[in-house]
Every structure is written in C-alpha cells, then in structure tokens.
C-alpha cells in the first residue's frame, strides 16, 4: 500500500518535471516570431467613399433578377 503510494508520488513528480522541462525548452528555444505590428481596422477615408471607389451602378431596384426566398 505504502510502496504503491510512493510510486504514485514519484511518477507524478517525474511527470511534472518532464512537463516543466519541455515548457522551458519551448520557451527558450521556440521561435514564436514577432506579433503582427501592422493591419487591423481603420476607418474609411472620404476619398474611399467616392463614387469611383464604390461604384454607383447598383443592380436595378426591385426584384426579378435573382432567386426569391426559400
């Protein structure tokens, strides 16, 4: 009974130590790279809202060109 408990303790200790070693190795030797420094959301400028960029030639108003609902 006592021997089994000691074995459990020893194996748990070994597992924790191995886990810590792997984590340390990844932490030290891992190449995570630099997080993105550019990109993300930005507000559209006035010139991007001009007709030439968006296009004012929308599909004709009303139905009849596309499929109707299910």
């Amino acid at each position: 009974m006592a021997a089994g408990f000691i074995t459990l303790i020893r194996r748990t200790f070994v597992a924790v130590m191995v886990g810590m070693a792997v984590a340390a190795a990844i932490r030290v030797r891992g190449r995570g790279g630099v997080p993105p420094q550019t990109g993300g959301w930005r507000e559209l400028r006035d010139d991007e809202l001009e007709a030439g960029r968006i296009g004012s030639d929308a599909a004709p108003f009303g139905r009849g060109r596309g499929p109707s609902g299910p």
Partner: peptide
C-alpha cells in the same frame, strides 16, 4: 425605380 428591395440594390450607394 418602383419596387421592393434591400439597400444592396439601391441606386447611388456611394452617396
């Protein structure tokens, strides 16, 4: 023009 549709079909979406 007369008819029923969503805003994706409205004329002059840029404006």
């Amino acid at each position: 023009a007369p008819g029923a549709a969503g805003l994706a079909s409205i004329p002059g979406p840029d404006r």
